[in-house]
């Protein structure tokens, strides 16, 4: 589908972005463990923990301080990623940059800004005893940061740098771009509702309603990808991945809710509830990242009907 570029100036920064994204995924797990173990206020002070960088790692402190340590590491990675992207882009004339690359440096800066804001929100939520709005914002921004870093990883990849052999036309309405963007927006709103439920700002009903909307949109998007572009391996893979992720997420959500009800009268969080809830949270993040990446891939490969495109020449999609 694409031709290899003559050289790979983004190769190393791409690897670094993938590493940062992987560490961010671990950070999301660590953050979800804090909430699931009801350990959010086990360390009353911030930015230090019990006035030190090495508090006793007992009980909830293990989760809270562990989360802070991983977050600090990801913060350092974000600084390095932003500086690296800036330097790589500054060395290349605009004419040599693949699509979107001109803005990549600013995406790095945005990721850095997000992780700094995320740290401050984390501090606020500790110092003000977990206000639902701040805690929900902290949980939501984490997902946005993850999506940003994952996008940087895609946009610096060899696949993205290659010129597509052909564009695919999308004559149907709504366009695949619109569907993908709608899915991203719906998933993001659903993550906000989920975070708000988890941090006791709302009840479960809005999150359940959001699940219905998100499931419908993702099935619509995945179905459209499969039907409209059956010969495009990337989009076929995306359709399959979205189906699997949303199916798993629904199962995990139901299981997490069941275990929460089952353990409601227990004196402490039980392992099953913690595992299911954490899995549901991080899979939610993966669903957001997937829809964002699928949207980027759609913009890379598909042109709406009637769009004026240069080389390579547009080509009708192979179905519909």
């Amino acid at each position: 589908m694409t031709t290899p570029p003559p050289n790979r100036p983004y190769q190393n920064v791409h690897r670094f972005a993938v590493f940062t994204a992987a560490c961010t995924f671990l950070l999301l797990i660590a953050g979800a463990l804090v909430t699931s173990n009801d350990a959010g206020l086990s360390v009353p002070d911030w930015p230090l923990s019990y006035g030190s960088l090495t508090p006793p790692m007992v009980g909830g402190i293990f989760y809270e301080h562990g989360h802070r340590m991983i977050a600090s590491f990801v913060g350092l990675l974000s600084i390095a990623l932003a500086v690296w992207l800036w330097r790589v882009e500054s060395r290349r004339p605009a004419s040599e940059r693949p699509p979107v690359k001109g803005s990549l440096r600013w995406l790095g800066v945005a990721a850095l800004g997000a992780i700094v804001a995320q740290g401050l929100l984390g501090g606020l939520t500790v110092l003000f005893f977990l206000p639902p709005s701040v805690s929900s914002a902290h949980a939501t921004l984490a997902q946005l940061f993850f999506a940003t870093v994952a996008s940087i990883a895609l946009l610096t990849s060899a696949w993205w740098e290659r010129e597509p052999v052909s564009w695919f036309r999308d004559p149907r309405s709504p366009s695949i771009h619109a569907l993908a963007l709608a899915a991203v927006a719906a998933v993001f709103l659903q993550l906000i509702l989920g975070a708000a439920f988890r941090h006791k700002a709302f009840g479960i009903i809005p999150h359940l309603a959001g699940a219905v909307v998100v499931t419908g949109l993702i099935f619509w998007l995945a179905g459209a990808l499969r039907r409209r572009f059956p010969a495009v391996p990337e989009l076929r893979f995306a359709a399959r991945a979205l189906h699997i992720l949303i199916g798993l997420q629904l199962l995990l959500g139901a299981a997490a809710w069941w275990s929460r009800l089952y353990a409601a009268s227990f004196p402490q969080p039980i392992a099953v509830t913690v595992a299911l809830t954490v899995a549901h949270v991080v899979l939610g993040a993966l669903v957001l990242v997937s829809t964002v990446l699928v949207t980027l891939v759609c913009y890379r490969l598909v042109r709406p009907a009637g769009a004026i495109v240069g080389s390579p020449a547009p080509r009708p999609s192979t179905a519909d």
């Binding site: 009353p44 007992v58 402190i61 005893f129």
Partner: peptide
């Protein structure tokens, strides 16, 4: 012989959270 934090969660009084090694 372990660290605790004491965290009352009042509705009408001031909330506080202090550690105690």
């Amino acid at each position: 012989q372990t660290t605790h934090n004491i965290h009352p969660v009042p509705k009408d009084n001031r909330e506080w959270n202090e550690s105690q090694p």
